[in-house]
Design a protein around this nucleic acid. Structure first.
Length: 1028
RNA sequence: GGGCGGAUAGCUCAGGGGUAGAGCGUCGCCCUUACAAGGCGAGGGUCACAGGUUCGAAACCUGUUCCGCCCACCA
């Protein structure tokens, strides 16, 4: 690999299209070699910002969840770093007990045809470590390919020495405090993984169709029977009681009696238990199996019942199961039913929906099993973790997850932490031959109770999540009091998926508070789940998995990152569609090309602060204001964790403001001879582009770093930091609103001309003459100064632009009325009057729809009285504008239809500029006619619409003449509203007729079906009446 | 059984008491020398349904219907 710095510092030209492969390979090393990712624990001058990467499973390969995590965290970290923080993003991997053990076991089975038991514990662990050495760095490399600015020098592994020490320390201390204990209880057992699981690792799938089978227990005294119902007949071999409700009259007489077990001959008591039994369910009598059911276990404790284990760890029936001993649990189920039926005890079956707990990992149906396990007494740990969130020490974003966290924490059960696996932290507990337990940090020489030697360490390992719970501080060197902890704990943000709130977030909270005396993170940002484009979970079996590595290969890491960020809205899962990625790859290309374009214009440009400010045009000031606005919005969005808004803001700014407008606007100055204007435009362009690059850097680190260097070399920007990552993030500040507002008329004029061209099907290059009329001196000044951009962007010759107080009505013209000014477009040749009339009619209809709404509001006394004055004032102004617009458009329409009605207008006749000039109502035209326009006239062949066609188009023609219209215009007040975005205007134009049409449609539909019109419409009509 | 989301353009989604938005797709016109991975323009909506609050509701409240997701030991 070449030295990236030299490669790019000397590069002043860019390839025609963006090739992510050329760029992305280069920069990661550049950043790491310069130590940009290093979090400095000695630096107390800058405020700290730290994140610990949720450690991916060491077996893992990068999937979209990781990619999302990496992207969002990198966005935060790079943003904060550029904003002057001392950032630390700490990487690492998780040993992932069951997952890893299973992966390696599977591989061993495949390659060597051996099981872990064949190898023995020590040898098996050696193999797992070897596997970890071989593949454990893979996911780290994949994070690097994404550009993640992780501090690799601090990379940790949950089973490395330091973290293992932290695990033992925590275990021992909790044990000393009585918060870790060992007890024989029922646990969820996975017969496939052969281990205990915590409640959280049990998946309750949708209720499955099963059956509820009833059978009779004969009373021991032969006086009758009691019928019980069960979904698990095989467990009846472990029954040690039958329970009924104490208030149940049906069974009052038998409580205290015994039943005889039909398969074992044991006798069982009939007990009364109000908690377990719902008399309305089934027969109201319940078989009780304390060793195989969580409820029954409690009943057994209440009534002192025997616990008989009839299903073993391998899910086969134990010797205690008598006639079915040795059978698999499901075979036993059938057999038990047969045996009981043979005795005539079958009392029927009915279908029953039941929820079955399955192993999260193997999907095996779990079995409650009575066994000795280690537990964390959780309530004392949960309490402060609840309080910390109540007190706002840790904040959840989106906020709704607070409830989820609280609900779980308040109803928490003790945590079973021992696992019957080999891969993991072996429990630091030793047993002496007498069975005494010694818990210690290191292997003790003798039993703490009886001083006997020959101790045996507990063979079980700890739940993987036990070590994960310590991650925010164990990775920083705890239990030592390190400088890193002092500087970077608590971490600033925990960013992870909401699927592990309980597994991980809650447990980190508890452990962090308990051992550090301080919450582990200030903010928990929970990102959405990534699904396929149909909203389905991605899974290999469905075949809908999008592999981030493939995406990165095809479209680039920047495109993937930007896509993920742009789709990350709070409170909704991400549906990832390929075309979004394609779209953002195009964005990278756009950015690339805009920089390429800028480079072309930057010959002889030197970046000197403030240089060229005096030559700035309105366009320069406009884009500078828009740049600042984009900065403000992006920063605000990032601060609120609104990644989609931040990404969307920069995207829109770069593409639609900087590229679509400003670069085009600036070309005159950039190509031109005026050195001061040129310098100003260059400076403005560089500023806007460099700002955009910095804004974008956290989202698209590679391309922005590349472009930064190229641009920096070109402009000889010695004041520029030599890496964009080392450059300051653009700071929020005041926006020059006057510059934004003042430029709006120019943009709208270009917009209007393009619109007319498009609507009337006039080719982009066809010559036009433009009249612009305004009575506002500042607007006029803006037009006078900036004719060039109308020329450039709307393809109108400078000599064909005429700016005055009024426009010159002409039948071969179209009119666009905007707030405070009016644009008349003269086609200068035969024109399709029908099309223009239709266009005008459409526009007037829209305006009238809007105006109707506003006028109705204003006519409503309670609106005027109760609405805030500024709202009323706004609507008044709007009504005025709309009336003005309508007046002007109607005058135009009247003029056009007047022309058509005049004797001269006949089918097939061509309207030319000449007869336009002969129009008595039009003021004197400018003295120099456009050569381009007249030349083109010859070649233009356009059939004029016939009078009858036009008649159709305009419907009922306006009766009023031009004079009347002009009068109306004058009468109408002309309050100005602030300039609006072009999109908004368009929307407003569009909205009105549709609304009107919708209403009309409603009425029509109502008439047809005889239904009442929708109430809202009725209400509105009512309001109108009341208003009058 | 509880709880939490969601329902807005053909699709994917923002927005959020005061003029219904974006991207993609569609249609029309442009190879204008940064970019056809492009430019310009257009069309496209009963903001799920029903009530309520309000001068004003897509937004707030209540209920309903669908769609997700969590939690829960009912035999």
């Amino acid at each position: 690999m070449q030295n990236p710095a030299t490669t790019d510092e000397t590069r002043t030209e860019l390839s025609k299209g963006y090739e992510h492969k050329d760029v992305e390979a280069r920069w990661y090393r550049f950043w790491t070699e310069r130590g940009y990712f290093h979090g400095d624990e000695q630096d107390h001058a800058r405020p700290p910002f730290s994140i610990v990467l949720p450690p991916p499973n060491v077996t893992g390969s990068l999937h979209l969840g990781h990619a999302l995590t990496a992207t969002l965290q990198d966005v935060l970290v790079r943003w904060k770093k550029m904003s002057g923080y001392n950032t630390l993003w700490l990487p690492g991997t998780d040993h992932a007990g069951i997952a890893t053990q299973m992966v390696v076991e599977k591989e061993l089975k495949k390659t060597e045809k051996v099981s872990r038991h064949d190898l023995g514990r020590a040898e098996f662990l050696r193999r797992v470590w070897a596997w970890k050495e071989r593949y454990g760095s893979r996911i780290g490399e994949q994070h690097k390919a994404l550009g993640a600015s992780l501090d690799w020098a601090r990379e940790r592994f949950t089973m490395d020495e330091g973290l293992s020490r932290a695990v033992r320390e925590v275990f021992v201390r909790l044990h000393e405090e009585g918060l870790v204990y060992r007890e024989k209880k029922l646990i969820n057992w996975c017969p496939d993984c052969h281990t205990a699981l915590s409640d959280l690792e049990v998946e309750q799938k949708d209720a499955e169709q099963g059956e509820l089978w009833s059978f009779a227990y004969p009373l021991a005294d032969g006086s009758g029977e009691i019928v019980v119902a069960t979904t698990r007949p095989e467990t009846m071999l472990g029954d040690t009681a039958v329970a009924v409700h104490p208030d149940d009259e049906r069974y009052r007489a038998v409580v205290g009696k015994q039943v005889r077990h039909p398969l074992t001959g044991r006798t069982l008591p009939i007990v009364a238990d109000a908690i377990l039994v719902d008399p309305k369910f089934g027969t109201g009598a319940v078989k009780v199996t304390p060793a195989h059911d969580f409820n029954d276990f409690e009943v057994g404790k209440r009534h002192g019942l025997e616990q008989i284990t009839v299903i073993g760890p391998d899910a086969r029936m134990t010797a205690a199961a008598g006639p079915v001993a040795g059978l698999d649990r499901f075979e036993a189920r059938r057999k038990v039913k047969e045996l009981l039926a043979a005795q005539g005890l079958d009392r029927g079956t009915r279908p029953h929906l039941l929820a079955i707990g399955r192993c999260q990992r193997s999907q095996t149906i779990l079995e409650p099993l009575l066994s000795d396990q280690w537990y964390v007494r959780i309530a004392p740990l949960a309490k402060p973790a609840i309080e910390a969130v109540e007190q706002g020490k840790t904040r959840f974003i989106p906020e709704q997850w607070t409830n989820t966290y609280m609900a779980w924490m308040r109803n928490i059960h003790d945590w079973c932490i021992s696992r019957q696996l080999w891969w993991g932290h072996q429990i630091p507990a030793w047993y002496c031959p007498d069975g005494h337990v010694t818990v210690a940090r290191e292997a003790p020489a003798a039993c703490a109770t009886c001083a006997k030697t020959a101790l045996r360490q507990d063979e079980d390992v700890l739940d993987t999540w036990f070590s994960s719970a310590l991650w925010p501080f164990s990775t920083m060197g705890w239990p030592d009091r390190t400088e890193t902890l002092r500087t970077f704990y608590p971490t600033s943000v925990m960013e992870t998926g909401h699927d592990i709130i309980f597994f991980w977030v809650a447990r980190m909270m508890m452990m962090g508070i308990h051992f550090m005396g301080e919450v582990p993170f200030r903010v928990v940002y929970l990102h959405p789940m990534v699904r396929d484009e149909k909203g389905q979970k991605m899974s290999k079996t469905k075949g809908n998995v999008i592999d981030p590595l493939v995406i990165t290969e095809q479209y680039g890491a920047d495109a993937l990152r930007f896509t993920l960020a742009a789709l990350t809205a709070q409170g909704r899962d991400i549906k990832l569609a390929k075309d979004r990625i394609v779209c953002y790859r195009a964005f990278a290309n756009k950015l690339w090309n805009s920089s390429r374009c800028a480079l072309m214009y930057l010959e002889c440009f030197e970046a000197r602060p403030g240089a060229g400010a005096d030559g700035r045009t309105a366009a320069d000031r406009w884009i500078l204001a828009r740049t600042q606005r984009a900065v403000n919005e992006t920063v605000a969005a990032l601060e609120a964790f609104k990644f989609n808004e931040a990404a969307g803001t920069v995207y829109h700014f770069v593409w639609h403001e900087l590229c679509d407008w400003y670069i085009e606007l600036a070309k005159d100055a950039l190509y031109g001879d005026d050195p001061s204007r040129k310098r100003a435009a260059q400076g403005t362009l560089v500023h806007a582009l460099a700002t955009a690059l910095r804004l974008l850097h956290p989202f698209m680190p590679f391309i922005t770093e590349e472009l930064w260097h190229v641009l920096r070399a070109k402009v000889k920007g010695d004041a520029w930091p030599d890496a964009i990552l080392a450059a300051p993030y653009p700071a929020a500040g005041a926006v020059d609103e006057a510059a934004e507002r003042g430029f709006q008329p120019l943009l709208e004029t270009v917009d209007a001309i393009r619109n007319v061209r498009g609507e009337m099907n006039i080719p982009p290059r066809a010559p036009l003459r433009i009249d612009i009329a305004t009575e506002d001196p500042s607007v006029k000044a803006a037009f006078d100064a900036e004719q060039g951009l109308i020329h450039r962007l709307a393809n109108v010759d400078r000599s064909d632009i005429y700016i005055a107080h009024t426009t010159r009505p002409a039948p071969t013209s179209a009119v666009a009325v905007r707030a405070g000014f009016e644009v008349r477009i003269h086609f200068g040749h035969a024109v399709d009057l029908g099309a223009e009339l239709a266009r005008i009619a459409k526009e007037i209809e829209k305006i009238e729809g809007d105006l109707g709404g506003v006028e109705r509001k204003l006519a409503n006394p309670s609106f005027v009285q109760k609405a805030p004055p500024e709202v009323v004032e706004k609507d008044r102004a709007r009504a005025g504008e709309l009336r003005e617009k309508r007046g002007k458009l109607e005058a135009h329409r009247a003029m056009l239809s007047g022309t058509l009605d005049s004797p001269g207008a006949s089918p097939g006749r061509r309207e030319t500029m000449e007869n336009e000039n002969q129009n008595p109502s039009s003021p004197t035209p400018p003295s120099q006619p456009s050569s381009t326009a007249s030349g083109a006239m010859e070649t233009m062949e356009k059939v004029v619409t016939t009078v009858s066609e036009v008649g159709k188009a305009i419907g009922t023609a306006v009766a009023s003449g031009v004079e009347a219209a002009v009068e109306r215009v004058k009468a109408a007040s002309t309050p100005r509203r602030p300039a609006r975005k072009k999109a908004k205007k368009k929307a407003a134009r569009k909205a009105a007729p549709r609304r009107a049409a919708r209403k009309a449609g409603k009425k029509k539909a109502a008439k047809k079906t005889g239904r009442k019109p929708a109430r809202r419409a009725a209400k509105k009509r009512g309001a109108k009446k009341r208003g009058r």
